[in-house]
Design a protein around this nucleic acid. Structure first.
Lengths: 243, 243
DNA sequence: GCATGCAAAATTGTTAACAATCCATATTTT
DNA sequence: AAAATATGGATTGTTAACAATTTTGCATGC
């Protein structure tokens, strides 16, 4: 009849299941572009890579698919997601909405400790930028927004935004302009100043500007074909390539 | 190497996989409280109920767990989530943040069509309320917010909010006050008026008030238990459960 | 009566084999 | 030569059996 409350509702206490670990590792790989849109994920290969059963990889796939980070095509397998242009626009629009609230919250109750956390992060971004470490710069750039989400003090928002940032990573990988425009690095500093100003409206406005800037640096018109398309490269008309 | 783009990226075109169907059905059951916090979900029972393999139930569990709608306890099984008080507070706080943006968007570009969609929904809420159909009223109340999310025109936000509303449903089930205070029914009308006013700030303020009101009607102190009968819950004939 | 310990039952976790499907290549046909 | 058609290999999907674990019921002793 009545269900006994489970004694240990699995508080984070226990050690991480290997399952979660693989999931996390794939998230990392997506964030720093080792996994690119369109890539096929072969169950058995991954199973061997992680020394784990195929079933577990399958379970991981389900989670990733739920986050829209991969596509699960019946009988065909799993592919790193290739966000459409519409999707890209919606993701950035959603981020605007959410991060608006985030920065308002932070600006409204800024503390010295939080400020220094942000500054410290910016310092790392700065270093990566100077060192010409493009990969690190990209990762840190994403983590900047994650840090803000964390500082907003709402786990729900934090997790949600994490997923949006991961999706953004795929979007950027797909649609970034050929010559990588100088990254948002400096914009983050502007943002910090706005946050320190303590004016929520100003901070929100700055964040909106920043996100729009990121979006506008993309080429949201023609997709970057996942595989090289020689026909277009050499200006020829691909005769009748199967549609 | 280069990956061939998948020919059919699984546009919604195809028919729903039975997997998604079960998932959806459990969401429904959570939304209208046929599944209550703490309930144990037994894989084999559910498998029989839905005439499906245990593996598929397992997959469904993973998705639900990812939404924090159930708890997956190693070696113990799956339980309908029992959101903690802290979690409850965070969920409502997150909703405030998001729905703030939602109503602003709607208020900013209200159209006659949208207005009538909302009115139509309110009418149904009204009827359910008058008919004393408490269950229907609860469901419709949740769907009101979902409708707004949809009208905001952002699929990402819509899906996210859907999950938060489902979590809210569990929260309310856990912490509602004994004598069900008159539901937010009338508050929704107030909200509509604010939306029609075309003033985003006013609308946002109204939504904030509404969400706070819901939260404040809860007794964020003590939980309550539940019992289990899948066959009746899902209105199915348990396939000859060998007894 | 209540706690303790043990054995049986129920339930979850894992694996491996097999079936179904798809993809790429080779072969035939026109 | 181009199109259509078989064929083999690779990959995913499913199932069932088994292993590991937890829960339950019962007997025992204090």
């Amino acid at each position: 009849m009545a269900n006994p409350a489970q004694p240990t509702p699995y508080k984070g206490s226990g050690k991480l299941r290997p399952e979660e670990l693989i999931y996390q590792e794939m998230l990392d790989a997506i964030l720093d572009r080792r996994l690119e849109p369109g890539m096929k994920l072969i169950e058995e290969d991954l199973a061997k890579t992680f020394s784990v059963s195929r079933a577990r990889i399958r379970a991981t796939f389900l989670q990733l698919a739920h986050d829209k980070l991969i596509n699960l095509v019946p009988n065909r397998g799993a592919f790193i997601a290739e966000p459409t242009i519409d999707e890209a626009i919606e993701v950035f629009s959603a981020r605007r909405m959410i991060e608006d609230g985030v920065v308002r919250k932070i600006a409204a109750n800024m503390t010295p400790d939080r400020a220094s956390q942000i500054r410290e992060h910016l310092e790392r971004e700065h270093q990566a930028h100077h060192a010409g470490d493009h990969r690190a710069a990209i990762i840190l750039s994403g983590e900047f927004h994650l840090l803000l989400a964390r500082l907003a003090g709402n786990l729900v928002i934090e997790e949600f935004l994490e997923r949006l940032i991961l999706r953004s990573s795929l979007i950027i990988a797909m649609y970034e302009s050929p010559q990588p425009v100088d990254c948002s690095h400096s914009e983050h500093e502007t943002l910090l100043n706005a946050l320190l100003g303590g004016d929520p409206d100003a901070a929100a406005a700055e964040m909106a500007k920043h996100l729009d800037a990121i979006r506008d640096r993309l080429q949201l018109q023609r997709p970057k074909p996942a595989k090289t398309d020689f026909a277009s490269i050499f200006g020829r008309n691909p005769k009748s390539v199967a549609s």
